[in-house]
Simulated scan of single mutants.
Amino acid sequence: MAKPDLNEFVTARIASGNVGDDDVVTLRRFIYGDMAVSLDEGAALFRLNDAELTYADTWYELFPEAVADILVNQARPEGYVSDENAAWLIAQIEADGHVCSRTELDAVLHVLEKAREAPESLEQFALKAVSASVISGKGATRAGNELKPGVISDGEVEILRRVLYAGSGCGGVAISKAEAEILFDLNDATIEAENAPAWSELFSKAVANHLMAMSGFTPPSRDVALAREDWLNQPGGYERGLGGFFRKMISGGVSGIRDSYAVSDPFTARGASMEAEIAANETVSEDEASWLVERIGRDGVLHENEKALLRFIREESPNIHPALQPLMDKAV
């Protein structure tokens, strides 16, 4: 059971309709006084958050911090979020029947960013929460009358980027198929909207990362692969894009290590093998081509973001699978 005094305090704050700065200080004393945060104490915080009161700014610092401490810093082994704890967090967020709020999304992101490893289900939950907020016009990303349902703003692109960055803590360096599917669903749902230009860039780079990540070799980290840069609209943009980075990364890395190790013959051979492996895996496979054709053709229309993705693949992939050629011919 949670400490009775904490539950009584939470009940009193809910009755008052307000959580002030002094209340947040008191909450910190309740929670951290014994140098440990329990799941029951976390549940009490969610009850306070779900009440939709007037909160001091410091509440928005305490809430995600405490949730991350429960699930990451006090986990055993430390830093590893278990399936059970991830399920607990999702259940707490869904308990009130509302779309994930921004405060709750911040808590999920704190957990993902601080964790050494977390279930992919938690990151997918965050992606879906952002997508639902965009489409419905309320929830995790919505603040301000200037935002419209079904339209992706610049701020929401950056939240999506942050969620995808955080996913590297789930043990996934490259974008997974499940993540790419969620991004495709969001793209389909907002295709007629006047989305922020940054959405086209993020969508294309993320899906390309999924398709072109190399098997048998660790691709670049997500913060590099998904860094914000206007590469779709720059001269030579594709060469500066994800596939070009793969080649340059390995080329520069190999030569740098070769210099360090005085160019030993075994290492030279390994470097040549790595470069050949990269070239082979930049080719979109039959399974990948079939998935992409099915996914792009789901609504029967080839949209601008999908054309940008196909142009990227055409520039970066040494061999285009025949199944993609009809789509490539339309991506002008």
Score class of each variant (00 low, 15 high):
residue 7 N to V: 11
residue 21 D to C: 00
residue 22 D to R: 14
residue 23 D to E: 05
residue 23 D to A: 07
residue 28 R to H: 13
residue 31 I to F: 12
residue 36 A to K: 11
residue 41 E to N: 06
residue 41 E to R: 10
residue 45 L to G: 15
residue 46 F to P: 02
residue 52 E to A: 12
residue 54 T to N: 11
residue 56 A to G: 07
residue 58 T to V: 08
residue 65 E to M: 05
residue 68 A to Y: 05
residue 75 A to M: 02
residue 76 R to K: 12
residue 77 P to Y: 01
residue 86 A to Y: 02
residue 87 A to F: 00
residue 91 A to W: 03
residue 96 D to L: 01
residue 96 D to M: 01
residue 99 V to E: 04
residue 100 C to R: 05
residue 100 C to V: 07
residue 102 R to V: 00
residue 103 T to N: 08
residue 107 A to W: 09
residue 117 E to P: 05
residue 118 A to Q: 06
residue 120 E to K: 10
residue 121 S to D: 14
residue 121 S to T: 15
residue 122 L to G: 03
residue 124 Q to W: 10
residue 124 Q to A: 08
residue 126 A to D: 02
residue 129 A to Q: 03
residue 130 V to I: 15
residue 131 S to N: 12
residue 132 A to I: 02
residue 135 I to F: 04
residue 136 S to W: 10
residue 137 G to M: 02
residue 137 G to C: 09
residue 141 T to Q: 01
residue 142 R to L: 01
residue 143 A to R: 06
residue 146 E to K: 15
residue 148 K to I: 06
residue 151 V to I: 02
residue 152 I to C: 14
residue 153 S to N: 07
residue 154 D to E: 11
residue 155 G to P: 02
residue 161 R to W: 05
residue 163 V to C: 06
residue 165 Y to H: 07
residue 166 A to M: 01
residue 172 G to S: 14
residue 174 A to R: 13
residue 177 K to T: 10
residue 179 E to H: 07
residue 179 E to I: 00
residue 181 E to T: 05
residue 183 L to K: 05
residue 185 D to I: 00
residue 190 T to V: 02
residue 191 I to Q: 13
residue 194 E to M: 11
residue 196 A to V: 12
residue 200 S to M: 08
residue 205 K to H: 12
residue 205 K to T: 00
residue 206 A to D: 13
residue 206 A to L: 04
residue 207 V to D: 06
residue 209 N to S: 11
residue 209 N to P: 09
residue 210 H to Y: 15
residue 216 G to Y: 08
residue 217 F to C: 09
residue 218 T to H: 04
residue 219 P to I: 00
residue 222 R to F: 00
residue 222 R to V: 00
residue 223 D to L: 09
residue 226 L to P: 03
residue 232 L to A: 10
residue 243 G to M: 03
residue 245 F to A: 10
residue 245 F to R: 15
residue 250 I to P: 00
residue 254 V to I: 14
residue 256 G to C: 00
residue 257 I to F: 10
residue 259 D to S: 15
residue 260 S to D: 08
residue 261 Y to M: 14
residue 266 P to F: 01
residue 268 T to C: 12
residue 271 G to L: 08
residue 273 S to T: 09
residue 276 A to V: 02
residue 277 E to S: 03
residue 280 A to G: 07
residue 283 T to H: 10
residue 285 S to Q: 06
residue 288 E to H: 14
residue 288 E to W: 05
residue 289 A to I: 10
residue 290 S to D: 13
residue 292 L to Q: 13
residue 293 V to D: 05
residue 293 V to T: 04
residue 298 R to F: 04
residue 300 G to K: 13
residue 302 L to Q: 15
residue 312 F to S: 06
residue 314 R to V: 12
residue 317 S to H: 10
residue 319 N to C: 13
residue 320 I to W: 04
residue 320 I to N: 10
residue 323 A to N: 12
residue 329 D to K: 14
residue 332 V to G: 13
